[in-house]
Design a protein around this nucleic acid. Structure first.
Length: 426
RNA sequence: CGGGAUGUGGCGCAGCUUGGUAGCGCACUACGCUGGGGGUGUAGUGGUCGUCGGUUCAAAUCCGACCAUCCCGACCA
């Protein structure tokens, strides 16, 4: 992609409305624009990252044996009446009417819809277990949207629902999902914790949250300083106790002492058991030919929230430092004097095509700006590798390689091998 | 919903106390110089000062209502 063509409105100053670093940087890097409180348009650079994360999630879900579907965002009241949630849920459930005055809501989650699909299509235990997922826009009319994309009202989420014959099978799927989420976060190079959690409005037996560790996190978790153990502090506090008092106490798992960390909840997995299947009469025939209520699990991961969380964990005073697996582009070719110097222009064009042919996603900064402007933009949007073609190219056919993380070297432009070295261990 | 704050060109801000018809930096347009850390010269474009109403000869400025946005709290996969 040519920088002169892309819609990339970078900003020197962050708009006043932005408070946390990820919000500021997403606005400054031209990734998003606000449409209304908690509702955003994703611009090309932001969408690139969103899609990268979405694809990692999709690949790992597919690898786990889950199957992708796509459910509607608009859902009829009747389904929500079945589980009593039409009345139970507050104004965060955005209710709307169609032209015939029939009630609908914008889906904040999809247990009702998927359970309706499964009960009408699956009749025998032989078809189970099933794990069905979708990657879709959710709407929750949050009391207070904040921190930009981090807590929006409209957001992109991967949600999956498993249907199992019994508790043991559910446990198996649950652990598979737990493992899948670990793989997703590891591929994104994010530091995270899995903590025991309250199952909240979704209900069910037990649940665990996946937290990205970051100072701006909205959740407070207690982690052991010596073991893997972590727990949401909500579950640890007795009445009247404050969070500070937990620090230094013995960890509930008996290993080490408690440390308090801030985390961004990006994933939540639940064992729902029979509650939804029971309410909606979702049964199949078991091997004795008798109706048997399904056991369900549900597993959510916030795709758009992961974009913000990744930035919270990977930035410096210059801008974003994308983990390579989710960077919008791999390489930025900074051509100094592209519009004036034919040698530079043709060498840049050639390198650009060559790298693209090799399968890299490449930007070419062909704009009529100086080096300062170009490198500042590149550092702001966090491209992992810059290849600078300028004076040294004219003098002796050399380019500078400069990574976002700090390393740099001078190489012959013919030495593509060295350029690619950079990506070897990524 | 309770508490706090903000709203002046795309972004950051000044002007408001003490009313007199809108300004600065960046960005943007044209041309030139420059071309390895947001360079520079000249000439330009762009704003019903959040909205509506009131006071006044006159309102960005004073008064009222409303709207929007942000922060803290309560709430929340």
């Amino acid at each position: 992609m040519l920088l002169s063509k892309i819609l990339l409105p970078t900003l020197k100053d962050a708009p006043q409305e932005a408070e946390v670093i990820s919000h500021k940087l997403m606005l400054r890097a031209g990734m998003i624009r606000k449409v209304a409180s908690g509702i955003y348009t994703w611009l090309p650079m932001g969408l690139k990252v969103l899609r990268k994360i979405e694809n990692i999630v999709r690949e790992e879900m597919d690898a786990s044996g889950a199957q992708e579907v796509f459910m509607p965002m608009v859902q009829p009241r009747e389904l929500w009446e079945e589980t009593k949630r039409w009345d139970k849920m507050g104004p965060e459930l955005l209710r709307i009417k169609d032209r015939h005055d029939r009630d609908f809501c914008l889906g904040p989650t999809h247990e009702e819809v998927i359970t309706d699909v499964i009960r009408s299509t699956v009749k025998s235990y032989k078809e189970l277990p099933l794990n069905i997922y979708q990657i879709q826009t959710k709407f929750r009319d949050e009391v207070r949207p904040r921190y930009g994309i981090m807590r929006g009202r409209e957001f992109l989420m991967k949600d999956s629902y498993s249907f199992n014959m019994d508790e043991e099978s559910l446990q198996e799927t649950y652990l598979t999902m737990r493992d899948t989420y670990k793989k997703v976060l590891e591929r994104m190079d994010l530091e995270y914790k899995i903590s025991a959690a309250d199952s909240g409005a979704i209900g069910g037996d037990s649940s665990e949250e996946f937290h990205i560790l970051a100072d701006n996190g909205e959740d407070t978790i207690a982690v052991s300083d010596t073991s893997e153990f972590a727990i949401n502090t909500e579950l640890l506090l007795k009445d009247g106790e404050d969070i500070k008092s937990l620090e230094g106490k013995p960890s509930p798992d008996g290993k080490g002492t408690i440390q308090i960390k801030k985390g961004i909840e990006v994933g939540h997995i639940f064992k729902l058991g029979e509650i939804y299947a029971d309410a909606m009469k979702a049964n199949v025939l078991n091997n004795e030919g008798k109706a048997s209520t399904l056991f369900m699990g549900c597993y959510g991961i916030g795709v758009s929230r992961l974009v913000a969380a990744a930035i919270e964990q990977n930035n410096d005073e210059k801008g974003i430092i994308w983990p390579h697996s989710i960077a919008p582009y791999d390489i930025n070719i900074i051509a100094i004097g592209y519009d004036k110097n034919k040698e530079i222009a043709s060498a840049s064009n050639q390198l650009y095509l060559q790298l693209k042919e090799m399968g890299y996603e490449v930007l070419l900064d062909d704009r009529k700006d100086g080096y300062g402007t170009k490198i500042k933009d590149s550092e702001l949007i966090g491209i992992p590798l810059n290849i600078i073609i300028g004076k040294q190219f004219i003098e002796n056919k050399e380019v500078e390689l400069k990574s976002r993380s700090g390393e740099s070297s001078i190489n012959s432009i013919a030495d593509i091998e060295t350029i690619l070295e950079f990506f070897k261990d990524k």
